[in-house]
Amino acid sequence: MIVKKKINKNESLIYLKKVNKFLVVSKENLKLIEAYSNKSKNDFEIYLKNNFTKNANNIEKEIKKLFTVERKSIDNHKIKFKKPKKIFQFNFKVENNYYSIEYNDGKIISAVLGLLNHLQCDSKSFAEKIYVYSSEKYCLLKLNNSRLVFKREESHILSGRIISHLTSNLHQIKYKSWTGFLHGTTISKKDKGVIIMGKSGSGKTLSSSILLKNGFDLVCDDMSPLTRQGKIGYFPNAMSVKPSGYKKIQQLLNNSFHVCETTGPKGPTKYIYPKNNVSIKKLIPCQKIIKISFKKNSNLKISKIENKDLLIHFLDDSFINMNNVAAKSFINWYLNCECFEISYSKDNDLVAAINEII
């Protein structure tokens, strides 16, 4: 079964569970994909020859390529780990939930240590234990009764899995019951949310910091959890700032943010979190997505863009649960969102633009 919804007369947004892909396709290509999914190999070849006499072989190759699974999963049970001789502990509290992470390599979980630094607390005997052990090639993550193994270069996925686990506990929503975790920062004002997204170095964290200094609240950074009802869940993780962007952001801080620095596989990163951020203990309606970029000495530009044009950028590093219910929920939510593109250089212009959009 292919999950699909029309965008316009000629195009649809579809989800292919087998390869976990969302695609915008034309009417003709949708027919091809459905034929490949529903017919036997022989029947599909006959279908191609009858309908695409000249290009049947090339089309068949392209369709097979589309359904090729790119990432090979790791067999969790084949990778053996011994408890490291030297271990460290990081203790923290999220609302009323206490946790303790036991780890042996700070670089592997540097992002987690930075994102949660402002939540540090004394150790508690009843805290939930999270274990992160790493070897030369792999990392082991133990959450409750689950055992997950990642390659060392996938430490960002490991960090995301920890944050999503903590978010699920906070909202008492099972991990697999979320629609997904979206790559973007969600801010809110008067119970209305906006997701801010952008390429690395585009000024996403800078823009969020400016808005937080001007009456907006931080719902969550970088991993916005989306419910089946199309709402974003609050989680108090810090915002990450690369060294190249810290000089500009530093001018905004004025001792109103918690600041820490960690060193990960790609070098040092600073993390900031507003000291007076409102604790949002509910789910925030969010139907606006903004692709943002800071351009020095430029005039303010705002344009409304089609959802399909933002899809690839929006799904980059996002995680949607691999089932048709979650996919249908995401497609319905996403196609009902309004998408904008903003470039600016002056703080006041940005604040005015977001106030108008929200």
Rank of each mutant, 00 (worst) to 15 (best):
I101K: 01
I101L: 03
E102Q: 08
Y103L: 00
G106N: 11
I108Q: 09
I108D: 09
S110F: 07
A111L: 12
V112L: 02
V112Q: 05
V112E: 10
L113C: 02
G114N: 07
G114Y: 08
G114K: 09
L116N: 01
N117I: 03
L119N: 05
L119D: 07
C121P: 06
C121I: 10
C121K: 14
D122G: 07
D122C: 08
S125D: 15
S125W: 11
F126T: 11
A127E: 13
A127I: 09
E128G: 02
E128D: 13
K129R: 11
K129D: 04
K129N: 06
K129T: 01
I130S: 08
I130E: 10
Y133L: 03
Y133C: 01
Y133K: 03
Y133A: 00
S134G: 04
E136I: 00
K137W: 01
K137D: 12
Y138T: 02
L141C: 04
L141T: 04
L141M: 07
N144Q: 14
N145R: 13
N145G: 12
R147L: 02
R147Q: 09
V149D: 11
V149G: 06
V149N: 06
K151R: 13
R152T: 02
S155P: 04
H156T: 10
H156W: 15
L158S: 06
L158G: 02
L158N: 10
S159R: 11
G160L: 12
R161L: 09
I162L: 04
I162H: 03
I162E: 05
I162A: 01
I163D: 04
I163C: 01
S164I: 05
H165E: 14
L166F: 04
L166I: 03
L166Q: 04
